[in-house]
């Protein structure tokens, strides 16, 4: 599988990552190399094997209210916070 600059740019868009063009070219090369190694999985006959689900069952818990995180402690980590209890982001709707 060959990854070129355009394909790398498409994936970067899906991943919400900003790259300069030179970095994209380098990344495309590295991904091509790594994917060609991963392509050895094609030689394995997996007839009779399904995608592995978790080996261990997940216990369920009762759906009961419990305390949430302390709001001040959460606010202290926010890059931009309104004391009314909101994260501030750039305007989304014009």
């Amino acid at each position: 599988m060959k990854i070129d600059r355009d394909e790398a740019r498409r994936i970067a868009g899906l991943a919400h990552l900003e790259f300069e063009d030179a970095a994209l070219d380098r990344l495309a090369d590295e991904m091509t190399k790594i994917l060609s190694y991963i392509d050895q999985l094609r030689e394995v006959d997996t007839t009779g094997f399904e995608e592995a689900a978790g080996a261990i069952p997940t216990p369920m818990r009762a759906d009961e209210p419990r305390p949430s995180l302390d709001r001040d402690a959460v606010a202290a980590n926010a890059p931009s916070w309104d004391d009314g209890g909101f994260f501030i982001v750039p305007k989304v709707i014009e």
Partner: peptide, 22 residues
């Protein structure tokens, strides 16, 4: 990037699905 690629439309079965079967 690798992970996003492996899950992206058109490649999921060839990469993620196959890896899970192996």
């Amino acid at each position: 990037m690798l992970g996003t690629f492996a899950l992206s439309s058109g490649y999921y079965d060839a990469y993620y699905g196959r890896a899970q079967r192996v």
